[in-house]
Design a protein around this nucleic acid. Structure first.
Lengths: 192, 192
DNA sequence: CTCCTTGTTGACCGGTGGTTAATAATGAGT
DNA sequence: ACTCATTATTAACCACCGGTCAACAAGGAG
């Protein structure tokens, strides 16, 4: 039934993803081309289309790892020893730090959600938001409005979307991140 | 000195801008091509490069009008009869409404600020922020931190950047806009 | 009737994402 | 061994893109 061993395969999905991922560290989605991946892999760009139906599909696969990482950051903080107030701050800072340290990825995960990067990524983004939402509520002393939690989430995205134009990584925006996080905590705390 | 009357010109900067602007209502920067503009204008796309040095320059010209419009919205509100609290709310709502009603333009004005749309637009964006900043401070009873005003500005951008994926215009997000604006007012009000 | 300038064209360049016929390579069944 | 179906790959091709540029049209000035 399988007339050709998988072991003989020279080009694998994994290799393609690895190469795309490698380039994704220094370049964004638009700057990476099927040809640049193929060139580095020593194959024709047509070959890639045998393994992935299009460019977007390659990046879905990569993004899912990043969504996991972001979710892990949140989990580790929630399971940590800090008090609720510190944890809440850390959740906000964690999101912004992740966004600033993975700018190209963050753009595709939450900002660029357009026709090209559709369904699958959308779902992961919603799941990530759900985790965030529950975490924030559980750390709060009072019952929060879901609309306020969403406003907070949006404001975090806004920060990353803005600062990524001015800053290379989290380190360079540390203070601003802290200020923004505390700003949002104030809003959540005093909302009635 | 001028061997050819301007009146004889068939293709003018204005015509090009008008056509680009027309397409800009329904398409975004990336979807509009020099060729699509030329085609609609009945000329070759090479001709456009006689009047504009590149695609970005055409859109600078268009954006400057939108920056003016946004600044006018703010001015009209500030010069209006409302009390400071209402005005502050209207400033926030005004920004978000403008962003949601002019999504492609807003993206270029504040979100996409990348290599292609550089200097000139950046300057206009900074000026717009300055006006916003002064307006917010003048409407506040207490002395605000500039970092908090910036957090507010960023949170407004975040709202537009997020909701433009889900909504066609301001009308469709009216309630969420209102909630977000009040959320930000809370933060500004209770910050010490 | 030149000459110079303003505009305009269309071919061209290097690049993109995506498709597809031909083909190489391989293992299974006989 | 030989066929056969399947998998994987190539390279040519498509229709686009932004941008450049030599050639050329058209008109006014001298």
């Amino acid at each position: 039934m399988s007339p050709r061993k998988p072991s003989t395969k020279d080009l694998t999905k994994e290799m393609i993803i690895n190469e795309a991922h490698k380039q994704f560290i220094t370049k964004d989605f638009q700057q990476i081309s099927m040809r640049s991946i193929a060139k580095e892999l020593g194959c024709s760009h047509g070959a890639i289309y045998y393994h992935f139906k299009n460019k977007a599909e390659i990046f879905y696969a990569i993004l899912s790892d990043y969504f996991s990482e972001l979710n892990n950051i949140l989990d580790e903080n929630m399971n940590g020893p800090d008090d609720p107030n510190t944890k809440l701050l850390n959740v906000f800072v964690g999101y912004m730090a992740f966004g600033l340290n993975n700018q190209s990825q963050y753009e595709l995960m939450f900002i660029m959600r357009d026709s090209e990067i559709d369904g699958l990524s959308q779902e992961a983004a919603n799941f990530s938001y759900e985790k965030f939402s529950q975490a924030v509520q559980s750390l709060s002393k009072t019952e929060l409005l879901i609309s306020d939690i969403q406003s907070t989430f949006i404001a975090l995205h806004g920060f990353v979307a803005h600062y990524r134009h001015y800053v290379k990584n989290y380190e360079e925006a540390k203070e601003a991140v802290d200020v923004h996080a505390k700003f949002l905590i104030t809003a959540l705390t005093f909302r009635k």
